[in-house]
Design a protein around this nucleic acid. Structure first.
Length: 690
DNA sequence: GCAATGAGCGTC
DNA sequence: ACGCTCATTGCT
């Protein structure tokens, strides 16, 4: 109903209906009036209930007319509580039939949620059957009021286009660089040549984009990569134009850097997974380096993957995309196969020139190396020879071991199948000795499941029935000891979970490192020994082969070319596909195989799949209510761990991926609307599937 | 027949 | 965590 006295200030039908109709002059003390212009604020509220994942309308009080800008943080009264929210937009009127409340306050007028990121968060939430507010929590760092009040620096100078030679080693490299330079949208899947100075190449792309006044976002797995790539960008574009975003900085530093992106000071963003949402101005280039690294999958709801977000964002922004690494994932292969991205790979001649000589073990070597009784033979003679030669030439040698600690995994003594927990099929291991306990003392502890923690005192192999166990991985410490004895004159340095070295000098040294912690050598390793390859390949994981090859290539790429004497010895059987791919340095061949295998099995990325888990009963109800699209199919549920939890896999064709996510979201809405106490977790295309 | 009370629910 | 609805209770 329109009230008869005219609303003051002039209003629309909606605001008149919902606002106090009393003229301002007659308003009671403390009574609010709506803003004259666009009095309705659409707000996304921070509440954990899935069915409330939509905007709610509020009135903007006249006092906040200028500060309640789109993208600002607000506080609102929602169901009696004060909750945080983001103001999406201002509108003249509301569709809501009821009475609107006022914004409680504008927390800050800083427009932290740009329309671009708001739209991205919505589409990422939809893609992953999650809530927009959860994506915003990943995308926008917590506010730091003091930092926000610091005067902004203003845009940094546009950097000059860098001279670029490095991309000429790749037949399609110069064309891609031209597209970035011209501001054309281009896509690429890039496999870096072994030994490639990939931070330099990516910096060249980023600074080229920045020189054309386009922003660039480069996402890498961890803070060490951030540091390297940041340094490479700074070398070409100067300090001001580049910012490093990673979670390890404190809240103030983190927010200051993020604001420098928002305010247009920084033009190039280098960071870990959350940087994929960084609000760069005029985005022109998005890069994900080493897209197979698990760190690119965010462990927080809705569990988005950097590569997917990047592709969605670049598509909406008309920006270029590079999905890069030494190895290639099945997902990247699909981008190539569907024609979405041309591949950038080195020419045959360049590859021949750059690659180290890689040798794998024959069957007899493997038997020897696996035998813990022949301790000295654990590192076979080809490996010793490679190490000795490199050390004599004055170069460091990389020794890659799977994990830190001591004897972490167990296998059947007889058939060597990985020892699995009888309850949950998780891997059995020996619990790590307490660091403070003495060397001797308490006896050996029972094999224990590393997933559910249940000790198994009466192991029996599921494959051959043997009761005897053996260690299949010898930890970094013991390997270091053995090598140290073999090369007594050479220093042994370790890099792993506790301390990670960034670089090593060009001197003889044995560098023992776990995957991902390999120090970058000043001038290339003389050799790399990739130990315990069967342990990497023995994981009961769909991606074990891909993951092993990725880690090997990351390490082997740090070795000098075979022309400079670079040797790589991988302790795994040469008949295995990932080993062959390493020996031939053919990541494309392996990615094709991997994608074919997943297509055959009906696993992502060939199909869209969701892992749904929760308490057995709640899960059953959820699956019952789930209205799947035509190609939908439910696998399981199967028990998950020692609790009452179960997990089902739900899959559809890729074409029905959106419909699958929508169906899952709807089922979640129904649950939260009913106030079901048991949470059901939904993850789309999760990395660990079996 | 109908106020007073309380549980349940939706949330602008 | 409020304010709304709707059911139940208890009194005239």
């Amino acid at each position: 109903m329109r009230s008869s006295p005219p609303c003051t200030p002039p209003t629309t039908a909606a605001s008149c209906r919902v606002a106090p109709s009393r003229p301002v002059t007659g308003a009671r003390k403390g009574e609010q009036t709506p803003a004259a212009d666009l009095p309705v604020a659409r707000v996304v509220v921070d509440v954990p209930l899935a069915h409330l994942d939509r905007p709610f309308d509020y009135l903007v009080p006249a006092t906040a007319a200028a500060t309640a800008v789109p993208g600002c943080r607000v506080r609102v009264r929602f169901a009696g509580q004060q909750v945080d929210g983001f103001l999406l937009s201002r509108a003249a009127e509301s569709d809501f039939g009821g009475r609107l409340g006022y914004l409680t306050r504008v927390v800050s007028p800083e427009p932290v949620l740009s329309p671009e990121i708001a739209a991205l968060a919505r589409s990422v939430a939809d893609r992953y059957a999650g809530a927009m507010i959860d994506v915003l929590r990943l995308a926008i760092p917590p506010r730091h009021a003091k930092v926000e009040s610091e005067p902004p620096a203003g845009p940094s100078p546009v950097p000059a286009a860098p001279p670029v030679q490095g991309w000429h080693r790749y037949p399609r490299g110069p064309a891609f660089l031209d597209a970035v330079r011209a501001g054309r949208q281009a896509h690429a899947v890039w496999q870096a040549l072994p030994g490639e100075d990939w931070p330099a190449r990516l910096a060249e792309l980023a600074v080229t984009a920045a020189a054309g006044e386009r922003g660039a976002v480069l996402v890498v797995p961890d803070y060490r990569d951030v540091a390297r790539l940041h340094a490479a960008c700074v070398a070409l574009a100067g300090e001001e134009a580049v910012v490093a975003l990673s979670a390890d900085a404190g809240p103030a530093k983190r927010y200051r850097r993020w604001l420098s992106v928002l305010r247009g000071t920084a033009r190039i963003v280098v960071g870990t997974r959350a940087s994929v949402f960084a609000p760069v101005r005029r985005p022109g280039l998005f890069v994900v380096w080493d897209d197979g690294d698990d760190l690119h999958a965010d462990p927080h709801s809705p569990y988005p993957h950097v590569r997917d977000v990047l592709v969605q964002r670049a598509h909406a922004a008309g920006a270029s995309v590079v999905v890069a690494g030494f190895a290639r994932t099945a997902e990247a292969q699909l981008l190539v196969d569907t024609g979405w991205a041309p591949e950038i790979v080195g020419s045959r001649e360049e590859l021949r020139a750059a690659a180290p000589r890689v040798v794998a073990l024959g069957e007899s070597d493997v038997q020897l190396a696996r035998d813990p009784a022949a301790r000295a033979a654990r590192i076979p003679s080809v490996a010793f020879d490679a190490a000795r030669t490199a050390l004599q030439a004055g170069r460091p040698v990389l020794v890659q071991v799977p994990r830190g600690g001591y004897v972490p995994a167990l296998a059947c003594q007889h058939c060597r199948a990985p020892a699995r927990c009888r309850r949950c099929a998780g891997p059995l291991g020996l619990p790590a000795a307490r660091p403070d306990s003495g060397p001797a003392g308490e006896g050996p502890s029972a094999p224990t499941c590393r997933w559910c923690g249940v000790p198994d005192t009466a192991f029996r192999c599921g494959t051959c029935g043997s009761r005897r166990l053996r260690a299949i991985v010898v930890g970094a410490r013991r390997t270091a000891e053995e090598l140290g004895r073999a090369f007594a004159e050479v220093p042994v340095v370790g890099s792993g979970a506790t301390e990670v070295l960034a670089t090593v000098p060009n001197r003889p040294a044995l560098v023992v490192a776990t995957p991902g912690a390999e120090p970058v050598p000043e001038e290339g390793y003389g050799a790399a020994l990739l130990l315990d390859g069967w342990a990497l390949l023995g994981r009961a994981d769909l991606r074990a082969g891909e993951e092993a090859l990725r880690r090997w290539m990351l390490a082997a790429a740090l070795v000098r070319s075979h022309r400079e004497g670079g040797r790589v010895v991988v302790m795994a059987e040469s008949v295995l596909a990932p080993v062959q791919a390493l020996v031939r340095w053919d990541p494309v061949w392996h990615a094709r195989q991997e994608l074919d295998a997943r297509t055959e099995l009906g696993f992502p990325p060939a199909v869209r799949m969701a892992a749904v888990d929760g308490p057995a009963k709640a899960l059953a109800v959820f699956l019952e209510e789930l209205e799947l699209p035509p190609t939908g199919e439910v696998l399981g549920p199967v028990p998950l761990g020692p609790e009452d939890r179960e997990r089902a896999l739900v899959r559809t064709s890729r074409a029905e991926g959106r419909a699958l996510a929508a169906a899952l979201a709807t089922a979640q809405h129904v649950r939260t609307a009913r106030k079901e106490p048991d949470p059901i977790r939904v993850r789309l295309d999760p990395l660990e599937l079996i």
